[in-house]
Design a protein around this nucleic acid. Structure first.
Lengths: 228, 228
DNA sequence: ATTACTAGTAATCGAGTAA
DNA sequence: TTTACTCGATTACTAGTAA
């Protein structure tokens, strides 16, 4: 997104266009921005072309709503600034969830060379082939899970192998059940499910802790400090 | 500040120029921004002219530090975005803590007519004379406790009785141990202790749940839906 | 009312290069 | 090396006005 659109994006966010279509004219928007009507019109036009906003015309009025892309562009800005201005940085985040069986496809992805090499280099271990899925039942842990989405972790790059593209992810180093090292895996997706936490570890966690579905597991997450 | 400088400002913030002079060349800055060296140079020049940054030349290197004005420009952006993104609304917040004995002065305050009347009117109950103190041992609950500080609850006004002044507070309706109604009391203080949660309830909680010091208690908090 | 096109100006930006 | 100048291209913006 172009830097000159940032004030417009923020204005739309403040007007509530994140959650619902808002009724606003280009004149009003221009005035709020301290710019001309024509520029507001152009910004909306261009932002629509870029997929940041949707415009709906109804009953002579124009309604503007930010798309998922628009909302997440703002969230990216917010996240950058949070790292600088939010004070609760290098503390430990705690999440407790219950073990459940996923589709088992985690083992496949984690074993791909393109990922495995990065895990070793950036996390310091080669993951056991398989991910551990935790279901987060308590709202308070789902909130922490959502906080992770906005935080900067250890970035794992996506890659291509000729056939298809594999997406990137953010990792957060973690201590599992206060005993075993591992990492939380936050995969870049379009849809965010805040009820599931995905873990990798150098060891077979089910074996290590003798876990079966429904058992509880505690994850202590160590966010990266904001130093660049 | 010009919109086109926002990414530059954010980059400098992320590099730590908020707290100390950072050593950076215009080439490096330009590269980080995905722009040219010349532009980075111009941005720094212009931002210095506007009083957003200071540049110090020492030992052949150039150091850049944001001024108070620069830091607060970033803070303004952050605050706008916070209002939009930092809301944890209408969900239930969960806190678990352990019972401990306070100084017992809670009973005195809660019984004051100036407060008692407001509790009845705004919370719908007259509190049992005495507050329940929970110690928050887990960091995750202390985080929720801090979140409460920034949230708007049910406001209890302060008052004067001729002799002295009594401060205000924010209340959050809560369900205690999934059974009894009550409220969390967030007292307006200068010092914030995020390890203690203070509760009021129409009933004697120690008697109701047969609690002694060290026992656990679960608090489900219902934040007001309107935003602070 | 609106939104958005056209035409023109001002600001922004990058390449080349001086200091 | 570094920073910052000139200059030409591009982009951001406004005024006037059509639709």
């Amino acid at each position: 997104m172009k830097a000159s659109y940032i004030p417009t994006l923020i204005e739309l966010l403040e007007l509530g266009a994140k959650d619902r279509p808002i009724s606003i004219t280009t004149s009003e928007l221009g005035q709020k921005l301290g710019k001309s009507q024509q520029l507001a019109s152009k910004h909306l036009e261009e932002m629509e072309r870029e997929g940041m906003v949707e415009r709906i015309r109804s009953g002579g009025k124009t309604y503007v709503k930010l798309t998922k892309k628009g909302v997440s562009s703002g969230a990216a800005l917010y996240s950058s600034l949070s790292r600088v201005y939010a004070k609760n940085e290098s503390e430990t985040l705690e999440i407790v969830g219950t073990v459940f069986s996923g589709l088992g496809e985690g083992a496949y992805y984690v074993s791909l060379k393109g990922y495995k090499k990065q895990f070793l280099a950036k996390l310091g271990f080669e993951p056991f082939p398989g991910t551990m899925n935790l279901r987060l039942d308590l709202p308070v842990y789902r909130k922490v899970r959502r906080d992770l989405e906005t935080m900067k972790g250890i970035h794992i790059d996506g890659f291509k192998d000729g056939k298809r593209t594999y997406g990137g992810a953010e990792c957060f180093k973690a201590m599992l059940n206060n005993k075993v090292d591992g990492a939380v895996l936050v995969i870049e997706r379009t849809t965010h499910d805040d009820t599931v936490l995905e873990l990798i570890s150098p060891v077979n966690l089910r074996k290590q802790f003798n876990l079966k579905d429904g058992d509880e597991m505690r994850v202590s997450i160590f966010p990266e400090s904001s130093e660049a």
